[in-house]
Design a protein around this nucleic acid. Structure first.
Lengths: 146, 146
DNA sequence: GGGTATTTGTTGCATTTGTAACTAACAACC
DNA sequence: GGTTGTTAGTTACAAATGCAACAAATACCC
């Protein structure tokens, strides 16, 4: 006999998460894509640098949990757009410190405003408590050891 | 002056969602990948067919919100693995009804058991109430009109 | 019926991603 | 100093995805 009483995809947390993430992510992605031709990883790198300038590619990868090849390619793209500049370290010439250019900072600030507004709308849909509950659970899931 | 008081990526819902979805999704993905060489969309199609056999590609795409080309390719892959069989409709020969083969059903049942167990562990991490809160908010987000 | 529009699903091509191999720089040890 | 191992980041190649164009079947309208 089948030993899977009432498995439902629509109650399965990984499925619900992925559906919600995709639905919500696409809307904001359309903005940085249309305005600045940026890809998802580029936006993330830009945002990390906007919050804490002067990071190396490795640090960004660790904070954002993004593979180094993705970071590398995103940085190349952001450099080509003149949003990011790299300064090779004097003490360790393998790595470089990345920082936003003046243009990059403007882009970051523009997107940060939009992001805040978008998040505000989401919070409104969910209600203040709903938003807090959601954030709590998502943090829990992200930090869960495997 | 910058007009983005305290924007923090780590409080930004799309970012948190995507981080959580990726972290949680990868773990389960490793299972169907290693056991059956399946890709994400293949698992989704299989699961939909397992729950409601006899769907067309179009129906699956609509239910799972997956683009028709992704569904098409997933079905081809599942056919090649002999997990799914298609029967061209008599009344409309453009589309075919898809169903799990006996093998496909076994695979589905195997994965459904594992999925339930995985979900049970997640629910345990989150607590009963945490899980319910999360599901509520995720459903809300997924169904949000754009 | 004959013409046009719509729908289902597939395919070709460009873009994006993942994996592994690689280079260059540094560290550790003798 | 020279050998070996490790680390930061890049690149080459394969696999996966998105998009647009497509074929085939059906629906609509006269």
């Amino acid at each position: 006999m089948a030993d899977h009483p009432d498995f439902r995809l629509n109650d399965f947390i990984p499925y619900l998460l992925s559906q919600a993430a995709e639905a919500i992510g696409q809307q904001f992605a359309a903005i940085y894509r249309d305005r600045y031709g940026m890809l998802n990883t580029e936006w993330r790198v830009l945002a990390h640098l906007g919050e804490a300038g002067g990071l190396t590619a490795k640090q960004i990868g660790a904070q954002a949990r993004v593979h180094k090849t993705k970071v590398s390619r995103a940085v190349v793209a952001l450099e080509r757009k003149r949003f990011v500049a790299r300064t090779t370290s004097d003490t360790d010439r393998r790595s470089a410190t990345l920082e936003l250019t003046k243009t990059g900072r403007k882009v970051y600030e523009d997107l940060a405003v939009i992001a805040r507004e978008y998040d505000r709308q989401l919070a409104h849909s969910l209600g203040q408590k709903g938003r807090e509950d959601l954030v709590t659970q998502l943090r829990q899931l992200s930090s869960r050891r495997t």
